[in-house]
Design a protein around this nucleic acid. Structure first.
Lengths: 240, 240
DNA sequence: GGCCGGTCTTTGTGATCACATTTTTACGGT
DNA sequence: ACCGTAAAAATGTGATCACAAAGACCGGCC
């Protein structure tokens, strides 16, 4: 099976091939093009990218460095399958850093930005109502990162992106479960926006932290992780 | 001027050259082998490493990806000079993540480990008294990372390491100032250890957060950052 | 039928080369 | 002495090649 990697608006400028490869792979990861556990071989990626193996190799290495991909001791690289512990670790880090980003952003957003973000929230709700999980997740990202970018903290933004990158494949695979989360756990960003409008950055940060923790708790129970027995079918103990 | 990169205990096993290059550069960065602003060219590093340019290129790229090095648009890579804003950003992230690591580690350390860490603290105090800043900073790292490693959170550890990597060259250059910080700002890890012995992880985390914030406040005032006029010599406004 | 051994393929690694671009150096004019 | 320009050196990028190790596949043997 040959894979296709969208060019989107990345190759627009005259960036080095390696940088293009990096960005396209990054986006493909977020978009769920790859399945958790899938092996990504240098030559195959290079072919999909239409380049020599060299840029693909560098790009894969970079992704592996920021833990967006797992590297086997043999050097082979694959899309990570989050274990339960890893998922909870990512969540714990997010629960610290993303509220920080909100606090930093709080003092810098203007009313126009907040209006634009309110529109995104509305679109997200519409997508949820329409039963379109991929759109719903996309709007979720759009809202949060729209805010994080306003924090004026490039390093922080990069770290948060890396965390999402790692969580990406799992969320994509489980997108129906994620979207079907009960109201008390769902990402409803209304309260955050309201707090920001009041200039209450600290409160908005607390709200987001609670949101992340609620969703983590829900998914910890609802998701089936790597190496764990399927939830429903009882017993069925025999396995190779 | 030719640079020398210590092999230390890195090349011990049969790791890929690229991985060795990556680790040696990483360590060199922490050890202050490079000056902030210094340009690191692929071929020069390759020569210092005794390899072809290829492993050096990949290693430098990886370091640049995790922001341990800055990349010019031309592709040239250099040791970052922290601006005041960047320093404060790193500190803010540290103030969130390192206490988290302490909380996670609190439930997993045994008495033996705490004893070993107490010895490190004693060594650090001795180094400070002896006026040996490099040893003092090394012991500081040893203590904190000894703890962080116990958190059992590999991703968190990787992120924290990356933050220290970025802060490394600045701290090294300013090591006399760092070590000469007043008692109320200095890194005194006694209280943290005491809290951990009582099993009060939350308290230890608060203690560390306060420590980081105190040191940040002190250095923000004491350090001279990139692009800022020297503190003492007044006026001297004329410049090219 | 299941397990083992060998072969053939695929994979990652690293070196070398060619090329375009940037950066430095040196020179000549003002 | 200063500055702009051209020549020269150095630099990053990417392709290709050779090699060793890991993996897949197939046939034969117990």
């Amino acid at each position: 099976m040959t894979i296709t990697l969208s060019t989107h608006d990345i190759a627009a400028e005259e960036l080095p091939l390696e940088e293009q490869a990096y960005r396209r792979l990054r986006q493909a990861l977020v978009e769920g093009v790859f399945t958790p556990g899938e092996k990504l071989s240098i030559r195959r990626i290079a072919e999909a990218l239409g380049t020599s193996p060299m840029p693909a190799r560098t790009a894969l290495r970079r992704l592996a460095t920021e833990q967006a991909l797992d590297a086997l001791p043999s050097g082979t690289v694959l899309v990570p399958r989050l274990t339960r512990a890893a998922f909870q670790e990512v969540s714990a880090i997010r629960a610290e850093l993303e509220p920080l980003a909100i606090r930093l952003a709080a003092g810098r957003v203007d009313a126009g930005t907040l209006d634009a973000l309110a529109a995104v929230v509305a679109e997200q709700d519409a997508a949820r109502a329409a039963g379109r999980p991929e759109l719903c997740l996309q709007k979720d990202r759009e809202f949060l990162f729209g805010l994080y970018r306003r924090a004026g903290a490039p390093m922080l933004l990069g770290i948060i992106e890396a965390l999402w990158l790692r969580r990406g494949p799992l969320f994509w695979e489980a997108r129906w479960i994620v979207m079907g989360s009960p109201p008390e756990a769902a990402h409803r960003h209304g309260p955050i926006l309201a707090a920001l409008r009041r200039g209450a950055g600290e409160e908005a940060a607390r709200e987001l932290k609670a949101e992340i923790e609620r969703m983590t708790a829900f998914l910890s129970g609802a998701l089936q992780f790597e190496g764990e027995a399927p939830a429903r079918p009882r017993a069925m103990r025999a396995r190779a």
